[in-house]
Design a protein around this nucleic acid. Sequence first.
DNA 1: AGGCTATCCGAAACCGGTTTCGGCACGCAA
DNA 2: TTGCGTGCCGAAACCGGTTTCGGATAGCCT
Lengths: 356, 356
Amino acid sequence: MGERSVNLKALAAHLGLTVSTVSRALNDYADISPATRKRVKLAADQLGYRPNQNARRLSIGTPETICYLMPRQIGPNAQPFVAQLLAGLGEALNERNWDLLVSQADASVGDLASIERLVKSGRIAGLVISRPLKNDPRVRLMQNLGCPFVVHGRTEKCDGYAWYDVDGEDAFVTAVNHLARLGHRRIGFIGAPLQYQFAQERLDGYNRGLTHNGLSQDPELVQIAEFTDEGGTAAAGILMDLPRPPTAIVCVTDMMALGALEALHARKIRPGTDVSVIGYDGLYFGKHAHPPLTTLAQPQAHAGRRLGDILLSIIDGADPTKFQELQRAHLVQRSTDGPVTSNTGQTIVSEREDSL
Amino acid sequence: MGERSVNLKALAAHLGLTVSTVSRALNDYADISPATRKRVKLAADQLGYRPNQNARRLSIGTPETICYLMPRQIGPNAQPFVAQLLAGLGEALNERNWDLLVSQADASVGDLASIERLVKSGRIAGLVISRPLKNDPRVRLMQNLGCPFVVHGRTEKCDGYAWYDVDGEDAFVTAVNHLARLGHRRIGFIGAPLQYQFAQERLDGYNRGLTHNGLSQDPELVQIAEFTDEGGTAAAGILMDLPRPPTAIVCVTDMMALGALEALHARKIRPGTDVSVIGYDGLYFGKHAHPPLTTLAQPQAHAGRRLGDILLSIIDGADPTKFQELQRAHLVQRSTDGPVTSNTGQTIVSEREDSL
DNA sequence: AGGCTATCCGAAACCGGTTTCGGCACGCAA
DNA sequence: TTGCGTGCCGAAACCGGTTTCGGATAGCCT
């Protein structure tokens, strides 16, 4: 309230100079004498002058803002990663004093329209897309609009734009290898709807891991469900009620794996002893699961920072196809994986490491 | 790329009208004939015209944007609520086509400066402060700047501005009452640093609950630690290693409660049987803890939406002090609470409900 | 026919900055 | 003394919209 915040005109009047002179002084133009520059900056500090960013950005022709497209969430299961991701993005943007906008939009028609409005209205210089579908209309839209963007994840056909992803296929090969080494030969897979590219990749990795270890692909061992804990519970229930149930299960997310554990408990099956379970994400809470969940952890501490840097580079004119970065997940062994055991329930204790 | 997006001048030229006429037509001014209005809007649609928001907002004098001040996180423990909160805020803003900015800032000197820059630069019309300290300089700063704001949580002296909070004191009275009814007379408290107002409130509730049930306040039963799971583990360890350990523990957050469970397990103490543990937050993952964590759940599905609506009202000129809303937490009984038992470990099974 | 009002649109100022251009005053060399 | 280049600042256009104001045209009435 009180007086309006001091603007350039007021500052110029205070100094007895014109706005153009003051503006150039503040922006370190060489044609302003050092003495005047100093005097102007001092007065600006004292009066607490801050340039109006709307006006400035209109003038310089860039919004100096990027947008993070937050996926819509399903149910109360929080998205524990967005805070960390936003923090990383913010860090990258802060160095230039750019702003971070957040908008919620998935691949629905209405959301596509709002994305188009957002871009065309000149509010943002680029955006980050999360959790893409196999064939995501948001990606095509961005390409048609000619608006810089980077995808956190990949689509099925992922050449031609920038993305940053964790290699889910490789991760599931690793998981199956690990279980095969423990003696498992019937390994179940709990997946998410295959419209999501990450779900397809992880299923591919599972299958590749099976053949690599000389195991046959049994269709009844593959269960697709919604990626919530309830989905995991339902899928694991189906798997364990099979005539020949698996001795190990890999799950497409930790949340589903937690749900799977419930199904095992309900059947008095001991996870890690009777049946192994491996999740994916590296969810921190997995530590406190019962028993602590073995998982494939994504290195996502720097995802936000990296996505921000990539997007800024593209906005600066870099070739988007130069930025296609694949990170590797690593196995965090906690307590839900173990060797195959006989029906007596006897188990062989092996060394455990709990990094992170 | 390609052609620049069509602006008002181009649209006017295309129609053979002036920009002022087109602008008024689009904004439904009465002095533009209905026929012209229709013609203009049709052409705008066909050409895909979207007004430049930076220009528009500069002209109309409001940034049409609010900012969520995201608290800096500590360690890898994600903040599971921010996604939900942002979704709610976005929902409130969408109805007006306002934007949501996210900035990370706590109460440090450097962050205060960046908040001041943000406000003075005219980028935002208001902001949301989260997780305030007892005496939070951000609140004072906003008051001095005369910038509309709403606090998610409260400071110690919380009259004079708008806030939305859950009654932590009441919640902890409820928790202590519940435990007292189960027969517990030595109840421990695991708290967070008292510079956070929520930590103080919950401690106050704990103490009030004790006296209300005729229990004495034993200082050694109050342990303050960092609000992480490790902090909870350490604090619970101290409590359980006491000569006269408590038979029940209330924890200031679910994360700390999960840590406390680890300390119990390490000592072969069965949570819910030998020692009761009650957390606070209603964290979804508590369902999968070992055993499932009893907790006081905050009704936070609508927090974001409500905070957004409140802030918009204040920006519209409403009196901030009219918006001081206190929600109640409710007990979600899972499996870590139970009656006091003798040393034999015998337990009385009681009914459980697991709402949510 | 003349005057008056209502209708509709164009002209121009403005929001608050940035940036190009031109000109004044000065110093220096011829 | 004149001329010229240089240093320094002011004037003005511009970014892309909104909004006030004034004027032209048409219609209506007497």
